[in-house]
């Protein structure tokens, strides 16, 4: 019994204590719907001969940022929104110039908020305007905890800005109606998906195109249809090395090499196969059939950059709080 206890304590110490020797594993803290994507990316990375073990943790992107700030020992973060990495910069966990560490502002792939409806599209949902109609139930995750949910807010606002020619009163009226149509705000993107698929809540799920295509593939085209709106919001998924953690663990090279892989043609191919739109033009061309044309507005064009979005929209008492009546 004593021996057993001792080995148990030893195992615990091993698992929790600081690792002094050269680490052989790194932790990737990631967003909720990227479960299958990174399982595939990690397998492909191992196939290139890399011996490092990649551990995975998935939850809402912002919840993950909070966890890292509270001490989650993530070597790399693969979030779905720049503002979440920015929180780590403010906390001193990630260097100021993280966007220049990797190509394309450190975003290996992108997606955008899109729609998933039940087979036959019974409520005839085609575009953002239909989501605010009376009697339509919309599911998307909580914008306070999920980058996915915040992108939905931004995309809806971008559409409304065009549709109502910038009339702020009308934009807010539309957004208020849209938010009032949401019966439940799950904390992560995947939880929102299961609410829509397993719990059969809502008429339309708004989530990343990547998730809508994956659901159609996994649960059947006879049950669900992906609908692409007329316009959406470019959602680039940023990656960063968590300096504070890799410096303490001595895992910087491992972390950097892993993130580099995501930008290689192999890494891009895996992303595309998992319905994340690749940045690599050749890989994108090869998968053109999967990804329909869509007009995407950028954060710079529509809102003047992420800093301005964070200050005007997502800060406490900001524009998001004005329409997020359900809190």
């Amino acid at each position: 019994m004593n021996k057993l206890l001792l080995s148990a304590v030893a195992a615990l110490a091993l698992a929790s204590g600081p690792v002094l020797a050269q680490p052989t594993d790194i932790l990737n803290a990631s967003y909720d719907i990227a479960r299958e994507l990174f399982e595939a990316e990690n397998a492909a990375y191992a196939a290139t001969g890399a011996t490092v073990t990649i551990n995975q943790s998935h939850a809402g992107s912002s919840a993950q940022a909070r966890a890292v700030l509270e001490g989650l020992q993530a070597d790399v973060v693969t979030f779905n929104q720049v503002t979440d990495v920015q929180k780590l910069v403010e906390g001193g966990y990630v260097s100021e110039d993280w966007t220049s560490d990797f190509p394309n502002n450190a975003a290996p792939f992108y997606s955008f908020p899109s729609f998933l409806v039940r087979s036959g599209n019974p409520k005839a949902i085609k575009d953002w305007g239909d989501l605010a109609a009376e009697g339509v139930q919309v599911i998307f995750p909580n914008p306070k905890t999920s980058g996915n949910g915040r992108y939905t807010y931004l995309a809806a606002r971008a559409w409304a800005t065009e549709a109502y020619a910038g009339d702020e009163a009308k934009i807010e009226e539309f957004l208020t109606k849209l938010f009032a149509n949401v019966p439940v705000f799950e904390t992560g993107g995947r939880a929102a998906t299961t609410a829509f698929t397993e719990r059969q809540l809502g008429d339309v799920l708004v989530t990343f195109e990547a998730e809508t295509l994956a659901v159609v593939k996994q649960l059947g085209a006879d049950k669900y249809e992906a609908v692409v709106p007329s316009v959406s919001f470019l959602s680039e998924f940023p990656v960063a090395v968590v300096d504070k953690v890799v410096d303490a663990r001595g895992s910087r090279d491992l972390a950097k090499a892993y993130l580099d892989f995501l930008f290689t043609p192999e890494g891009q191919e895996v992303a595309a196969a998992n319905f994340h739109r690749p940045q690599d033009a050749t890989v994108a061309a090869a998968h053109a059939a999967t990804f329909p044309e869509i007009r995407l507005v950028t954060v710079e064009d529509a809102f003047g950059g992420w800093d301005k979005v964070a200050a005007d929209h997502f800060a406490d008492g900001g524009l998001l709080d004005k329409v997020f009546v359900n809190q």
């Binding site: 939850a59 809402g60 912002s62 919840a63 909070r66 909580n142 306070k144 905890t145 019966p183 439940v184 705000f185 799950e186 904390t187 719990r199 809540l201 359900n326 809190q327």
Partner: peptide, 23 residues
Amino acid sequence: AGNLPGLTEIVSLLIFIRLEEYN
């Protein structure tokens, strides 16, 4: 529970959501 605010949201869950919201 449906976890719908106001209808099927229990106190423990609301606490959990506040935590995830960093509130």
